[in-house]
Each structure stands twice: as C-alpha cells, then as structure tokens.
Amino acid sequence: MSASSPSLEVATPERVALTLPVAGIGFRCMAWLIDALILFFFWVTAYFVFSLLVSDVLGLFQGLSGLAQTLLVLGAFATQWMYSTLVEVFFNGQSPGKRLVGIRVVRVDGSPVGLYESAVRNLLRAVDFLPMLYTTGCLSMLFTEQHRRLGDLVAGTLLVREERFDLDKYTAPAAQASLVPGSRVATASVSLGARDVELILAFLERAPWLEPEARRRLGARMVERFGGLTEEERTAVLASAPSTEGFLRALAQVR
C-alpha cells in the first residue's frame, strides 16, 4: 500500500482510525465485466433451457396471453435494472462480480449500503453510461479523489478493496532452521524492527517463484544486512538456497 493510493478514513467510536483502501477504475471495470457476463449467460441459459422444454419459442411467446407477455417483458427489464440493487442490498454491498474481484460498496462513513443508496447509485447508471460504455462514469472516476462515479457521488457511496492476508507466514514453523549451523548464533545476537521482519517475510514468500540467480543474490544481501555473522558461518549459511532461507526465517521469527 503506497502512500499515494487513495483510501477512506473512518473514525470509530473506539478511537481507532480505520483506513480502507479504495478500489480504482481497473477493479471496477473488471467487476462490471464479470457481472455483465453473468447476466448475459443467465439469459443465454434461460433461453436454451426454455427451448429444450418448448420446441417453438417464438410461437409460444406470441401465443401467450397478453398479460403474461407484458409481465415477461417487464420482468426482463426489471432484472436488468434491479439486479445490481438487489444483490448489493442482500449480499452486503457485493454483487457476484465485485465479490470475485474483492471489492465492496460502502457508504462514505464505512457502514454497509442500504436500499436507497444502492437504488440511487444504480439508477444513475443511466447517466454514467452516457454517451457510451460508461464514458461519463469513467471520467468522473478519474477526476475524483476516491474514484467515484456520478452515481456514487449522488448516493454517498464508494468502493473499498478487500484483500486476503496470510498470517501463517509469521508463525509457520521454521522447519529447516534447526539444520543450519548459524541460526542459533544469530538469534542471540540480533533484534530486528517490524519493517525488517516484514521485508524478510515478503522475500521468503516470493522466493520460490524467483529466478535462481536472483533468489541467491537477494538472499545473500539479506544475510549480509541482517545476519551479523562471522566469515565461516556466513559461508555455511550461503551454501544453498534452503539453508539461506531457513536462516532468514529463523531470524525473522525469533520471539
């Protein structure tokens, strides 16, 4: 999370400030595409299921009583317009697309959206869509600090990101650490700040996907910087990637 990325600050009655990361235009387009696909496939499937049951769909539609036909068309129209509002209200600000992308609609004070806010922001799609494909909405998102389209501005809502965190990395057992000769020395002699720990853990998390050369080089630099080892200890630790990373893990997870 860089300092420049926009966020929503919420002051709670517990006197703790919450900082929620705001979802940008990319996340929102992605979520919209997924929702549009879902609606599209819903209609395609509905049509195919229907045509399996009834051989002559058009004939049946024309043969329907007038009231049934009107209700059907009204229903289809309502599905298109009410889909977003209903799913947002019932699934706590997340349509299926938003859930997949990991974003959520909230009010500007961080509380969940209600029926009225959701209805406003979704009815205003009529204007945000103008002149084509949400041009107005995208411009509004680009020029507002928290990436809100006109519907969000009117409803007093915005979209926040929800991330998945892996806390295991802090507490995962350092299995290989005991095999490494240097680890016991290091744990006694160095104490690291939270930032250093975070840096080492981030490296360990990504190490399996790094190029071997880069993995070795970065590992060596970490050991140089945080290790505080004697010459022969360092050579032993740097002998292989598992021993380097085992040492670093033991170093970061010292209690």
Binding site: T12, G110, S111, E163, D166, L167, A194, R195
Partner: peptide
Amino acid sequence: YPGTDVHRFLNQLCAQAYAAIYQP
C-alpha cells in the same frame, strides 16, 4: 508495526466488525 501485513489485516478485520456492529 505500521505498513506491515498485520497492520493491514487488522485494519480490514476491524472495518468488517465495525460495519457489522454499527449497522444502520
């Protein structure tokens, strides 16, 4: 521990709980 994953995790956890407790 500012800027760490723990910080961000707690931020999100508290936000979810806050939304659940102070519901309109």
